[in-house]
Nucleic acid binder design. Structure first.
Lengths: 186, 186
DNA sequence: TTGCGCTATGTACGTTTGTACGCATAAATC
DNA sequence: GATTTATGCGTACAAACGTACATAGCGCAA
């Protein structure tokens, strides 16, 4: 219903196009997986012509990499926010519990995307910087409140518990998570 | 150089064929990812004709699922062995450390396959039983030595630490792992 | 208003894909 | 040894793929 979308064939000077394509790419990956992600499906999801794909991005892999980079940056930003808000160590501990049991368990879409990212990075080593950059930011956020070693262990636990909770719904309850975090940060 | 392979065109009564195709499938997934796994590539890797693919397996997805099932069963078997050997709680603790820092970190192939499996299951819910079955066996192995709650936390930590060590080589050292396990099992 | 130059796109091409199916061929029976 | 039966495979096909490229369309200078 916007002025831009209503007029047909009038697509020039659409400054958000590149961004929209990247978001559409994440949407397609979330539903179809990387293996089902094609130029045509992305173009349809973003409502842009097929020609825009090769015009804005060098290749499909280039586009996928940029999409994953955006995903990790958004997640890292929220992650950092959560720990920036915490004023005491106890609040930080509760934030960890929240991340394990709240966030990821709720949004199936995000977890699916993260798992697709892992698989993609595992087989495309040149994109490993996406992962290392993300991990560095997470670690940094945790180190606001915990020692490097403890931060590393919390980070790993968040990773594993999120995945397990995703695969097996009643995996780790909130009180169980609270106990685990208490042990690791004692 | 085997009698079977030397003779050309003589491929009848090859009872290991189906098994060999499944193994070849894992090999292709490890190198190319699920997105690059095709009937033709698997057939070449297994040294069987293309026609054998649709003859032995209903579809490509059917084959991939069977391959992943085999993967998890093998891993679960080794996992169970490691904890069956442990006689004391301390030996069991050390086994956990070994799993985190030894196994997976070493074999890049296996970790890649596991990550491909996660992504595949996330977007193919009908294959979730492969994951839940595997997790149940792991949990069972850990519960030989630890309480259910502790076993769950160890399982999650193994998961997360393995992934982090894979993505970031100098992630968690052996002594760091030892300390974490001690905390979780205290 | 007119013409120019750059941005954006419709379309076409050569490959590769999953899958179906008719036929060759080995095992079984007499 | 001849005939039947069922197992296994070579090949063909339509659909979908990534990408290249000629050209259409718009802003801007004059």
């Amino acid at each position: 219903m916007t002025a831009d979308k209503s007029s047909s064939g009038n697509r020039r000077y659409d400054p958000d196009r590149k961004e929209r394509i990247i978001e559409a790419t994440l949407e397609v990956i979330a539903v179809q997986g990387v293996s089902g992600t094609t130029h045509r499906r992305i173009a349809e999801a973003a409502d842009v012509p097929l020609g825009s794909m090769t015009y804005h991005f060098a290749s499909l892999d280039d586009l996928i990499e940029q999409a994953f980079l955006k995903l990790t940056q958004e997640i890292a930003h929220h992650f950092d926010d959560a720990f920036r808000k915490a004023q005491t160590v106890d609040e930080a501990r509760e934030a960890v519990v929240e991340v394990i049991c709240g966030w990821f368990a709720v949004t199936e879409r995000k977890m699916t995307l993260i798992l697709e990212l892992y698989a993609y990075v595992a087989r495309n080593p040149q994109t490993r910087h996406v992962m290392t950059g993300w991990m560095a930011k997470s670690r940094q956020a945790l180190e606001r409140h915990f020692s490097p070693d403890v931060a590393a262990s919390l980070d790993a636990m968040i990773e594993g518990a999120s995945i397990h909770n995703f695969m097996h719904p009643d995996g780790i309850s909130r009180e169980a998570a609270r106990l685990i975090v208490a042990k690791l940060t004692a």
